Computed example of a mutant assay.
Amino acid sequence: MMSTSEDRAVRPGTPPDTAPRPEHTEESVGVLVSRASQQLSQLVREEMQLAQAEMVRKGKQFGIGGGLFGGAGVVAFLALEALVVTVIAALALVLPVWASALIVTGALLVLAGILALTGKKEIGRASPPTPQEAIAGVKADVAEVREKAHR
């Protein structure tokens, strides 16, 4: 018949059991390091994917802003052409033709201004050209790893 620790506590003179009894199964350091390495690799891959997605989004915003600036340049060029036509019309006829040409020129310049401001706003929204969200995520991950390492 095998004795248990309760039996020994009841029976005086029985030597205590000196063999360590595992309370729960513990994984070896090698397994833990391997798992941490795999998790770190997965985390780095996911952060790189986040950075790539963020850079694609910002690239699109830069493209839209640049296109709007380009559009503003084209419209401003058309406004200059219209201004030339206005001057010619002003010299050729006294009022009706050049007045209408001047109104068109003014409208084109207003449109160019709106396009330029909208383009500037889009480029401002895409700045700075770094993946800020991914960087913040990596910093948070590093802080969490450090916190857990010090426990």
Results as ranks from 00 to 15, higher is better:
14 T>Q: 09
147 E>M: 04
118 T>M: 06
32 L>C: 09
3 S>L: 11
124 G>W: 01
82 A>Q: 09
40 L>M: 12
92 A>F: 02
54 E>Q: 05
67 G>L: 07
86 T>V: 02
61 Q>F: 03
113 G>V: 00
80 L>N: 14
140 A>F: 02
147 E>Y: 08
132 Q>A: 07
141 D>T: 03
144 E>T: 12
134 A>H: 05
147 E>P: 00
13 G>Q: 02
103 I>Q: 13
97 V>Q: 03
18 T>Q: 12
67 G>A: 12
139 K>E: 11
129 P>T: 07
66 G>R: 12
39 Q>K: 14
113 G>E: 10
74 V>A: 12
142 V>G: 02
105 T>I: 00
51 A>W: 10
104 V>F: 06
119 G>A: 00
118 T>N: 10
121 K>N: 12
1 M>N: 03
100 S>M: 08
77 F>M: 08
144 E>Q: 13
73 G>N: 10
52 Q>E: 08
92 A>W: 03
146 R>E: 15
119 G>C: 01
75 V>M: 05
41 S>R: 15
38 Q>T: 10
44 V>W: 05
29 V>F: 09
54 E>W: 04
102 L>E: 01
117 L>S: 07
64 I>M: 14
84 V>K: 10
115 L>A: 09
6 E>R: 04
56 V>G: 04
122 E>T: 13
54 E>A: 00
93 L>T: 12
6 E>G: 02
78 L>H: 05
56 V>I: 15
40 L>Y: 10
117 L>K: 15
97 V>Y: 01
137 G>H: 09
107 A>L: 06
11 R>K: 08
25 T>E: 13
36 A>M: 11
76 A>W: 12
142 V>S: 04
66 G>A: 02
31 V>P: 06
14 T>W: 09
44 V>F: 04
133 E>K: 15
98 W>M: 00
9 A>M: 11
129 P>D: 05
26 E>I: 02
139 K>I: 03
140 A>K: 15
30 G>W: 06
77 F>K: 11
116 A>K: 05
125 R>Y: 07
143 A>R: 10
39 Q>R: 15
45 R>N: 14
82 A>W: 11
33 V>F: 09
99 A>P: 01
50 L>E: 15
132 Q>V: 13
54 E>H: 03
68 L>N: 08
123 I>K: 15
134 A>S: 08
11 R>W: 14
77 F>C: 02
123 I>E: 14
108 L>K: 01
23 E>I: 15
146 R>D: 15
21 R>Q: 12
130 T>S: 05
28 S>V: 01
113 G>M: 02
136 A>I: 04
21 R>N: 04
43 L>H: 10
125 R>S: 11
75 V>F: 04
45 R>Q: 15
125 R>P: 01
107 A>C: 05
111 L>M: 07
5 S>W: 14
33 V>D: 10
56 V>F: 02
34 S>W: 14
112 A>V: 02
67 G>Y: 11
51 A>G: 09
31 V>D: 10
4 T>W: 02
141 D>A: 01
